[in-house]
Simulated scan of single mutants.
Amino acid sequence: MAKKPAAPKPQLVHIPTTSADNPALSKAQKEFNRLTKRISKLEKDVAEFREAATRLRQRVQNEYRPLQARHNEVRADLVRMLDRAHDTYKLTKGERTKIVSLLLDGCYDLLQKGHPDLQPIFDKYEEPETPEEAAAADAQTAEMMKQLFSRQFGIEFDADADVSTPEKFQAYLHQKMATEQAAYEQQEAERAERRASRKKSPRQQAAEEKKQAEEQNITQAVRTLYRDLVKALHPDLEPDETEKARKTELMKQVTTAYEANELLTLLRLQLELQRIDQTHLENLAEDQLRYYNKLLKEQARELDEAMFREQEILSGFTGKPYYYTPTPAAMDYDYARQKAQLEQKIRQLAAEVLAFEHDPAALKAFLKTYKVPKAGPGPVFLEF
């Protein structure tokens, strides 16, 4: 099968380091080269990370999810086997207590994972909760949630706040956050009003005017590039249909880059279309370079943010901090490791279920090593 042709590399945009007229680069020229090189690398990194993340999601859906379903099927077999053993094997009271713990503490989540048929088994061993126990559990949960939101969001709960149920907790939280947000907005409005009422000093006024002038010059620099490219590419002026289609696609790229203030993309297109050459870049005035460098810094910053967003999105999918899989290679390694672990877990559990089914002594030996988890806040999920 023929290999897919590699995507063309973007045009290199840099100022030559040596020439007869310019043997040494200025500080602004060196900054320009550094920024264009950095942006090119960031663009490549973001694109490769996004492709790898998409590939990972596809592999999880096509390979890992079926393995998880198979794992839960084997766990369901374990539940049925333990239920039969509880009723038919000659077991001690302690061993039966451990089986009940294995069922309720370790496998109850199977009801929400495609095995609602196990409900009668769990009902068989679950003791009904008394009103006092339910109230105590609700109070404990409410206290834990209060501590969590106090630590993470700095929310102070009133001593008499009624958060005894999830509904009451959510309602109180929304009211509290809305009150604090309103207070914050009021403070910001007052600060803005005070700032606006202050008379600017001549120095501050001059600095503000200089900043506005620079922003206008930066905008004009990008607009000049855009107009030059539009003049060269306007598809309505092209009689050849093939060339017209090519120019239409390039115009889309130009418009997208212009709207996003992507100076480097516009410069690449100018080089590609031979609207400028490296000598043109070398002879840019220092003021022009300074405007270009400001735009390039902003473009690099946006790409840094884009990479972080991609990592955060992937983190939400995997449930792991973004620094666990910062590169495509790290993604592939982590996925292969987790898949191998799950496959091994399935093989081991299936073998244990088979052994317990045919050999009560094997089950007894396993129960001897099993310790009933201590009661604590929240559910307990055991790994099988």
Rank of each mutant, 00 (worst) to 15 (best):
H71N: 05
H71F: 15
N72A: 11
E73N: 14
E73A: 12
R75Q: 11
L78N: 00
L78R: 06
V79A: 13
R80S: 06
M81S: 08
D83T: 04
R84E: 08
R84G: 05
T88H: 10
Y89F: 15
K90L: 06
K90N: 08
L91F: 04
L91H: 02
T92H: 03
T92V: 03
K93M: 14
K93I: 13
T97H: 10
K98M: 01
I99M: 11
L102Q: 09
L104F: 06
D105V: 08
C107N: 14
Y108G: 12
Y108M: 14
L110S: 02
L110V: 05
G114H: 09
H115N: 02
D117Q: 14
L118K: 03
P120A: 01
P120R: 01
D123E: 13
D123Y: 04
P128Y: 01
E129C: 04
T130R: 09
E132C: 07
E133F: 03
A134R: 15
A134I: 11
A134D: 10
A136Q: 12
A137P: 06
A137M: 12
T141N: 11
A142S: 12
E143K: 06
M144R: 15
M145N: 14
M145P: 01
M145E: 09
K146I: 10
L148G: 02
L148A: 13
S150Q: 10
F153M: 12
F153Y: 15
I155C: 00
I155G: 00
F157C: 02
F157W: 15
D158M: 01
A161P: 13
V163A: 12
T165R: 10
T165M: 04
P166K: 05
P166H: 04
K168G: 08
